[in-house]
Amino acid sequence: MSADTLRPWLKMQDLTFLRGDRTILKSVSLDIQPGELTLLTGQNGSGKTTLLRILAGLQKPQQVQFEFAGEQQKWRQSYRFLRDQICYLHQQPYLFDGSVSENIAYGLKRQRMGRQAIKAKVAEALEQISLEHLAQRNSRELSGGEKQRVAIARAWALAPRLMLLDEPVSNLDKRSRHICYDLINQLQQQKIGVIYTSHEPQAGHLKINRHLHLYEGEMTTKPLTNEKAAVVELVKGNPNQSRG
């Protein structure tokens, strides 16, 4: 990783999210470097999912400040950009009714890609997840692990800057977990940033760059226990500075 990775491509500051009277996220700030693999831990209900959904432009917070390409933006200008650049995967990903190929092609069609180009990209994505033989299978007939892989391939095909994986392995058996970890490692090699959440700090065989922890709506950075981690501290500034 070179020096340019030290400049965050997305800065999020002062995020506050309330549900009713309850504060879910309290003045959270986060810098995101290109191609960085972040582990986000926290107990159930600590706001992990909410944070990811806000980052993906799917949920409007009460207060936030985004900065990308050096420009400060309010939510109204940001969410479209976030949806374009960032892909969110549900804990149990949703596959549309249709074949595996159609699912992977869904986002590509929205990018007005030619039919041949889409076909090639779908084939490439299927190869990535080693599910070429299921291309024409209806998505509803897949196992949980296969669904997770198709969902990752579907997002990967769009070449997003960042993928947000919400507890991607929690419902998978051991074999599927390993396949999933391998896929995440591949994403990192291709310089696609990943934030993935887990309610347990076990990172498996992932080469994580940073470990963030949410507790009662506030975020802290945890020291990396993973020896394989290439960079110990990428975060510029202090993500856990809370002003509220």
Binding site: R53, G57, D84, H90, Y94, Y106, R110, Q111, R154, A155
Partner: peptide, 15 residues
């Protein structure tokens, strides 16, 4: 219907 369908479509870049 599953709300995830709506969010998935949006996050995959659908208008």
């Amino acid at each position: 219907t599953d709300r995830r369908a709506w969010e998935t479509a949006l996050t995959l870049g659908a208008s």
